[in-house]
Design a protein around this nucleic acid. Sequence first.
DNA 1: CGTATCTCCTGCAAGC
DNA 2: TGCTTGCAGGAGATAC
Length: 291
Amino acid sequence: MTVDCFPVLFNDSLFDMPELPEVETTKRGIQPHLEGRIITSLIVRQPKLRWPIPAELNSYISNQTILCVSRRGKYIGIHTATGTVIIHLGMSGSLYLVAAGTAPLFHDHVDMCLNNGQWLRYTDPRRFGSILWHENTNDTDWRTHTLLASLGPEPLTDEFNADYLIKRAKGKTQAIKTFIMNSKQVVGVGNIYANEALFSAGINPHTKAGVIKPKQFMLLVECIKTVLSKAIEQGGTTLKDFVGGDGKPGYFKQSLNVYGRAGEACTTCSSTLEETRLGQRSTVFCPKCQK
DNA sequence: CGTATCTCCTGCAAGC
DNA sequence: TGCTTGCAGGAGATAC
């Protein structure tokens, strides 16, 4: 049996959490298997995701050729001539290719059947993800969809720089951590990487965004770019172990300095890392290194 | 308008 | 051992 499988899977026995690097890795992984293929049908076993999968989606995309696959923030777009399938992985979603007919497990909610004997399988235990449809019109593309229209810049582009962030932060009383996690300011900075970037930049997560100095913003921007691009290079990370198709566990987790290390020693100064809550999110920082 | 809180869901861990 | 409870989190919805 030939299983031309996308070689990156999450270990489903462990908690996993797609952040921007995982989404980018997923997009890169599935892209070559999808582009140019024809969608023969869509099998929906569980339509109840964050929003219902459109009931007519199968009829919209059947017999359509996949023109390209793209990413905006944590959204993946699968583009056809008539519109775009918009997929968000939520907190526990994953996408990978299986051989046609592969028996689904309980959380394998959707299969997009292709004309080459492969199915793009969507798995999502917590069902926080979404699969939506944006129909093409004359003057719009998928980025004008309600969920994408007001997204901030991509963190790894030049558009995301210190000048931009300084302007956006001016007068803001919001904590810097929740500020950079707001997708209207910049997309793709999830909880893990927000914690890590603020540690690298030496900024206390509680600091009001508006009082941060330009030089600190320059450093913060660099740290965000570095932490995200490193993770992408390494094929993404997860909260626990990340398993590649070659069977080797991921190793980026081992380079996390603060996330998941509350009560442990700071890698820089050996102080005990503290944990607090910010915006209902676990926040870990070094009280000595991050002022 | 800006900001904080609530909410969806399930798997896992801790506590009894 | 088996039950209950709490927690984790992306990001839109809701409430100030």
